[in-house]
Design a protein around this nucleic acid. Structure first.
Lengths: 253, 253
DNA sequence: TAATACTATTCCCCCACACGGAACATTTGC
DNA sequence: GCAAATGTTCCGTGTGGGGGAATAGTATTA
């Protein structure tokens, strides 16, 4: 979270180039150069270096991110114990409910979706594998935050603030902390259209013996179906159950 | 394939650090430093820079690759037309055969697995999403090579040679080119234990209207089940069929 | 508890090298 | 065939990357 004292500038420019390639879905040299206020020469040198290591590819004069990122990404996710143990349970959740079930983990104070399974009647959301979210905007994120040390949560809020996504988003620190308190006690979290209008969600954290929060799993659906006892009782039980199974399997793996 | 004329050295050292983190599954500062013959100070600066951008994480004094790679990787693979169109067909293939079905693409002269689906009786291979292979060692790779320009194939062989994996691996250029000729004519490729002893495979390329090779799909299984007419006739038909469907859907998407 | 041996972190100075600029190829469009 | 793009290469310069050492912090020992 803190900033580097002696950052390596050329690494930062390389990262800027990579970010731009992602944002622009690939680009030509000159486009990149004036997009980033760098010389064509400079950008060219960086691109060639990156190409040599597979982090960038070129087709004719179009440069794009290389599959090396995919290689690294898969490597990382496969090393995560919670990933392996959660996938089958998340798949189960989506089968049982017919809705969208997801696995989220925290890193750098943000949430990243590691897996999703679409049930028969599932919504299509913008929550693909690899998508980022603000933790306070989702049930998944709140389930995680509720089990992090308070000073960590403060640090995260200091860094990202509490940006608003819908009129229901929790935007005050007090509000959030009081809800996290409840979540910690009851063991699961709700999202009542706090990130997307019309979408409700319920999530439970994956916590191993030693108290580490490894992530959270959830079921999400349209408000029309997410209501009454089904939403308040049945679903929480299902989700908490799945989270517990994952927690145990993660502990002993 | 060619080398950068003016490589950016600090980017190269950053990449070396990242590679080391992958190879070592994370490491401490000092371990990294003497593993790479760099000063602790230098490594520290790089790590901090990378951390600030999410490409590295630290838990206490242990540094590891960050989930940012996963974010980038998913972004890239989701942009690939062939990925979206192939996934359901590959899943079908594994359902129909009960074996392991896969999707491979080529980049930088190597093959990368983008997707795999395990049927009921499927083998567990080291061919996960994101794994790399030499093209000449697999049916998938050969199906791709057979449809690349000859000079490209030569370039790839010049760069990687033809390393041997089993006694069946094609290790001479002439052998390979003559087989590629056959593959191009018949439209599918065999792998008779050329990469792993006891494992046979059959693959067909995904080629769009304009002649671009987007990748290849395959079915793999133990030699005991992959034989006779089933292996020589039935399976090729299934695989070619799937590849054709993917080709068409990729063309018009 | 104190001393020791590790860590990570910071600082500083010097030389390498990253960068900008310009010249050079190469392709595209009019 | 000229003009206006592009990507590529080169070179000189001044800046910032890297080595080394000093510092701070943390574990491990007696």
């Amino acid at each position: 979270m803190e900033t580097a004292k002696n950052p390596v500038r050329s690494v930062e420019t390389t990262i800027e180039i990579l970010d731009a390639l992602k944002r622009l879905d690939g680009a030509d040299l000159s486009v990149l150069a004036d997009h980033l206020d760098l010389t064509k020469g400079t950008v060219h040198n960086h691109l060639c270096t990156l190409i040599e290591h597979g982090f960038v590819v070129r087709n004719d004069d179009h440069f794009d991110l290389g599959i090396r990122f995919f290689e690294f990404g898969e490597h990382i996710v496969n090393k995560k114990k919670v990933y392996k143990t959660a996938v089958p349970e998340v798949d189960n959740l989506s089968d049982e409910t017919g809705e969208l079930a997801s696995l989220l983990i925290e890193e750098h104070g943000q949430g990243i979706y590691l897996h999703r399974a679409e049930g028969k009647q599932a919504l299509t959301l913008d929550t693909r594998r690899g998508a980022r979210v603000h933790l306070h905007q989702t049930a998944l994120g709140k389930a995680i935050l509720a089990n992090l040390p308070k000073e960590r949560v403060d640090e995260i809020i200091d860094y990202y603030q509490l940006p608003k996504a819908t009129e229901n988003t929790l935007t005050s620190r007090d509000q959030l902390f009081s809800e996290l308190e409840d979540i910690r006690e009851q063991g699961y979290a709700f999202d009542r259209e706090e990130r997307s209008k019309g979408i409700r969600c319920i999530a439970a954290p994956v916590i191993t013996n030693d108290g580490t929060v490894h992530g959270a799993v959830s079921v999400a659906g349209p408000t029309s179906r997410m209501k009454g006892d089904y939403y308040e009782k049945t679903l929480p039980e299902l989700v908490v159950n799945a989270a517990n199974v994952i927690s145990i399997n993660t502990t002993y793996s």
